[in-house]
Each structure stands twice: as C-alpha cells, then as structure tokens.
C-alpha cells in the first residue's frame, strides 16, 4: 500500500468514528460528499449550517455529475472556512481531483479531500474534543494524521 492509500485509509478510520446518518465506513461510501458534509456540519454547525447542508443532494446513487457537484460544494466551503475562519489562504496545496473521487473512488485524491477536514477540526471551537478523540486512535493512525496536519499547515498563508 502506498502512502496515499495509507493516508486515505487512516483518515477513513478516523472518520468512521463520527456519528452521522450517511454511511461512512468505506471510501466508496463517502464519494457522494453526503457523509463528509454531515460530518462538517457536526464539527462546525455554525459555518457548515443547515442552509448549506440542504444544498447537498442525497440519494444521488451512481450519478457522477451529482456526486461531483456535492463534492465541489464541500471542497469550496472548506476553502471558504480556511479563509474566513482561520484567516488563511491555502497556497500550493494540491486540491483533490473531484471527478477522480466520484467516478473511480481514487484513494489518493480522496485522501487529499479528507485531509482538508483535519484543517477544519483543528481550528473549530470544539477542537479539544476532536483532538482528544484522535489521540485515542492507534499510534499508526495518529502518526498519519499528524503528518497530514503538518503538511496542510505548511500551505497556510495569512
């Protein structure tokens, strides 16, 4: 397994602990963006609010266009979060190829999308809760999470 798959699998292990209605145990289950949006709503419900969540289409099945549209809304709003809440632009961070995620469940690209959720978690008002949860995970997973956060933060430009 290469490092990108390890990143994706480790972040899926972390995400699987969130309690949201949409399935989110396996990579293919999150490629429609629904579970990710619900998780973001749980992490910071003020920013990822119900009005925003209502724009995420559920039950999109295998419709790649609708899945990609959902993923675009998720990615764009996370980028908004960095800008508006943390006061940072993400410069030089290779944004995920959303079509590769929606069409092929590309784990390299999915890992980069999930990596951005970490950036939200470590800046949200409930970060203590979420970081303490991360610290309960296996050391191998924690190590991947740490490296992913460090890499992301290298791209923060105020």
């Amino acid at each position: 397994m290469d490092e990108h798959e390890i990143l994706c699998d480790s972040l899926m292990t972390w995400l699987s602990n969130f309690d949201v209605p949409a399935p989110h145990q396996y990579p293919h289950e999150v490629t429609d963006g629904v579970a990710i949006a619900q998780i973001l709503g749980q992490i910071d419900g003020e920013f990822f609010d119900t009005a925003w969540l209502s724009r995420i289409k559920e039950d999109v099945g295998d419709n790649f266009r609708l899945k990609t549209n959902n993923l675009k809304k998720v990615l764009n709003h996370m980028i908004d979060y960095f800008r508006e809440v943390t006061g940072n632009e993400l410069v030089g961070f290779q944004l995920p190829d959303l079509m590769a995620i929606s069409e092929q469940t590309d784990k390299q690209q999915l890992g980069r999308l999930l990596q951005l959720i970490l950036g939200v978690v470590v800046n949200c008002s409930k970060k203590q809760h979420y970081i303490e949860e991360i610290m309960q995970l296996d050391e191998d997973v924690q190590h991947v999470v740490m490296t992913a956060i460090q890499e992301l933060m290298q791209h923060y430009v105020p």
Binding site: T86, V122, K127, E139, Q142, H143, I149, Y156
Partner: peptide, 29 residues
C-alpha cells in the same frame, strides 16, 4: 544532543497534539 534518548513515538504524538490544543486558531504550524 547525541546522548539524549530519542523521543518515543508516543511522546512525539502527544507533544504535537497538545501543541495544537494550545495553538491560536489560524496560526502556522
């Protein structure tokens, strides 16, 4: 210091995550 024992992985992880808890939102790593 070459005589200093290497930090255990557990310690490195704890230090990192504790530093995040003490970090101001939005500040660099």
């Amino acid at each position: 210091d070459p005589n200093k024992p290497a930090q255990s992985n557990e310690r490195v992880l704890a230090n990192f995550f504790n530093s995040l808890l003490n970090k101001k939102p939005g500040s660099p790593a």
